[in-house]
């Protein structure tokens, strides 16, 4: 390297370097940058459109449906007799036909969307909250807590491992059976299944972040460890957790459907829910396969929407792809 002492002030170089960043528009934060990338990704847009449609149906649909979803009109009007295999298909009045109890299938699909959305979101939130709490404590303890921190982390992670070692459906079934069948139970059960995933994910990301130089820099500035964990490590570790949450929403919906299918769902079977509708339809598959196809397609499309958006978010938040 050549460093002539007389040329110490290389102002020209400095000016040239500074001109690389021009004018005084505000800086672009990571989140805004990620949003911009998300908007340019076709998969994200497809996913977002599906989800927007789903949420719209779930929120305002129930006010607009032509029939009460619990009204057994078909039986009353003697057009449906499921015992004799008579379940009429789609018609001008009933767009998707009747279900096995003579209720309007279209109305049930629309109202069921709301149930499905609520169950999906709430159970994901339950899993996310508990998982983030466990993972956050374990990650902070392992990353910054020294010897005692590692012990705390070890204990928490072994508990999580135990949850992880049970097959997810079995875990959900045990929780649901233990607490008695109700809608809340289903949501707790499905939430519990995703707890270890969130906990492990956040902990791993936090430990990776705790070894980064900016954490060392913050402690050399004299910032408290608790503040470093909350204001540096956690925000930088959340991206994979958020992505996982969108993906979990999709699996949660499927798992709720599975639990309903197994009869551990909402005991009030009059309230439409896609999983339950699917379960009820199995007896009439040979008569009216449509009854199974409609809720199945609903579940698939919704899960697809969440998955597409989740994958796109994973890409958008990946720091390796940032320019």
């Amino acid at each position: 390297m050549t460093l002539a002492p007389g040329k110490k002030k290389e102002k020209l170089d400095r000016l040239a370097e500074l001109s690389a960043v021009h004018d005084d528009e505000r800086g672009v934060s990571l989140w805004r940058e990620a949003m911009r990338r998300l908007r340019r990704n076709p998969a994200a847009i497809v996913g977002a459109v599906i989800l927007a449609a789903f949420v719209l149906v779930a929120v305002i649909g129930p006010f607009l449906v032509p029939y009460e979803p619990t009204d057994t009109i078909g039986v009353r009007e003697k057009v449906v007799s499921s015992g004799h295999g008579i379940i009429p298909g789609p018609s001008a009045d009933h767009w998707l036909g009747y279900d096995h109890q003579g209720r309007d299938e279209f109305s049930r699909m629309v109202v069921g969307a709301r149930q499905t959305l609520i169950v999906g979101i709430v159970s994901t939130l339950i899993g996310l909250t508990i998982g983030v709490l466990i993972g956050g404590v374990a990650g902070a303890a392992a990353g910054l807590g020294g010897r005692w921190g590692r012990l705390v982390d070890n204990v928490l992670m072994r508990i999580v491992d135990m949850m992880l070692s049970l097959p997810s459906l079995l875990l959900a079934v045990s929780v649901a059976a233990l607490l008695g069948p109700s809608l809340v139970t289903v949501m707790i059960a499905v939430g519990m299944v995703s707890v270890p995933v969130f906990a492990r994910l956040l902990r791993g990301a936090m430990i990776a972040q705790a070894n980064r130089d900016y954490v060392l820099a913050a402690s050399s500035l004299g910032v408290r460890k608790s503040k470093i964990a909350i204001s540096h490590i956690v925000p930088n570790s959340l991206a994979p957790v958020i992505v996982q949450a969108t993906l979990t929403l999709a699996t949660a919906i499927i798992e709720v459907a599975a639990l309903s299918f197994l009869g551990l769902g909402n005991p009030d079977s009059a309230v439409p829910e896609w999983g339950l509708m699917l379960a009820d339809a199995q007896k009439y598959l040979d008569v009216r396969p449509g009854l199974a196809i409609y809720p199945a397609v609903g579940i698939i499309i919704t899960a697809l929407g969440f998955t597409l958006l989740g994958e796109a978010m994973r890409e958008a938040l990946d720091p390796k792809l940032r320019r």
Binding site: S29, D213, Y214, L216, A217, S220, H232, P235
Partner: peptide, 17 residues
């Protein structure tokens, strides 16, 4: 007493301006 780090990218929190 302060410290200057080797890799300025990893020693700056990407979420802080």
């Amino acid at each position: 007493m302060q410290m200057i780090f080797q890799d300025p990218m990893s020693s700056l929190d990407p979420r802080q301006n």
